[in-house]
Design a protein around this nucleic acid. Structure first.
Lengths: 233, 233
DNA sequence: CGTTTAATTGACCAGTATCAACAGGAGTGG
DNA sequence: CCACTCCTGTTGATACTGGTCAATTAAACG
């Protein structure tokens, strides 16, 4: 199935290098938008795996709808979630032949799949596209640095506060967060246990920074206070 | 000062996408090697800062000699070292206008500095170069994922074992490691305290996997055993 | 050498994990 | 519509890893 190429261009408008990128060399559509013509839509049921760590990385993806998680496992089952993916996010591009993390759907989701082979040939021709891919990847790397700081140096309260702000900024609502993921997912994202996550939520409530109507709903009462609790700045 | 462009091309030979990248479009030198012509060498004394987090990201760099560290700080002084940089490593390329981490020299070091503005115009012209930058950045991202797993889910012993293997693989010697960095650096790299690092070294020795002639020298006796202690595989 | 800094070691503590019991909701079938 | 079950999340009791604070030793440096 072909995409209809009307997805929100979430990357457009990002600072791009230092602005010196010249327009596309040819008259045809260039940049990430040009990918829409080679993408195919795929559905993933909630909880199902799109690909496993070590699978051949034959495709690159973009989230169309729903939420997914990427993660790595240790042999004894310990899991680290690298990121939650939201509509518009690109993922699955690899430096090597295989995926170095697995991807599963948190909620029912649809993704757009781009053939890596075709992407490769496009990239070799189109500096503009290539540079945009670089931009997306560099943004992802920035985020990874922030997450290393969180995982290595923040305590449980700071981790949860940081997480809620991240989710708030990706939410549609201005001060309400819909947590699509389980406590287990949150724990594995923050390097904690579910029990610690469960115990830390009420602490934020006690501080008066959030309300907790139920386990998957958070209302941010005082955003500034929440930011103060993240440890940064 | 200009570089003499004879640096080991450590990136050449990496798998590149799926191998479908076409040769450079023009007859002139292309790819990362072409950068040598726009690089300038800069020295950094041991312990000195090359740039701080938040500084304008006007340049991109490659390590020529010595070892450096990139890190982020929390306002109260907690530090997370993102990576140690060795000769041949590229660093400092950013998605935004500013550096999102600081870089300091661990030992006296020299780096090659590439103007971002000139890099930007090269990238817009040369799909091959652009794709190689992407390759380098994707490799870095892979490594970041591994580090998130380490920081979020491994215990002190597994962290130190992983660290020693990483350093061994970047060492010249076949089974000896020269640790250029302090215990504080190691601790901040692994999300531990110096005391824990200090206490964990002797445990590895007790296991018989390493010898510790002195604080900055490690001899790996049993590499397989060390790998078993990392938690992965 | 003496001085300073880095690393180790010890005693104790705290934050988070672990193990276990319990509660709340969603779905299912009677 | 209600009980039953399953699953997720919460709460409690306790353990333990790693952190903190302090003292000591070793190494680097002038």
């Amino acid at each position: 199935m072909r995409t209809s190429s009307q997805l929100a261009p979430s990357v457009v408008g990002l600072p791009f290098f230092d602005g010196r990128i010249s327009p596309a060399p040819t008259g045809r559509n260039s940049g990430l938008e040009s990918l829409d013509t080679i993408g195919a839509v795929q559905s993933v049921r909630a909880g199902c795996e799109l690909y496993a760590e070590g699978d051949a990385a034959a495709s690159w993806y973009r989230v169309n709808s729903g939420i997914l998680r990427t993660y790595k496992l240790l042999p004894d089952g310990r899991r680290q979630i690298d990121e939650f993916l939201f509509p518009g996010d690109y993922f699955g591009l690899e430096s090597g032949a295989d995926h170095d993390f697995a991807t599963e759907a948190v909620t029912a989701a649809t993704v757009i799949r781009y053939s890596r082979a075709r992407l490769g040939s496009l990239v070799s021709e189109d500096a503009h596209l290539s540079a945009q891919l670089l931009q997306v990847t560099l943004g992802r790397l920035n985020k990874a640095h922030g997450r290393m700081l969180l995982l290595g140096r923040k305590n449980a309260g700071e981790k949860l506060a940081s997480f809620l702000l991240e989710m708030l900024d990706r939410s549609s609502g201005r001060n309400t967060i819909d947590l699509a993921m389980s406590r287990t997912d949150i724990a594995d994202y923050l390097g904690l246990t579910i029990e610690t996550v469960s115990r830390t939520f009420p602490l934020l409530k006690q501080e008066g920074v959030v309300e907790l109507p139920n386990a998957h709903h958070v209302v941010v009462i005082d955003r500034q206070a929440l930011e103060d609790l993240t440890g940064d700045e």
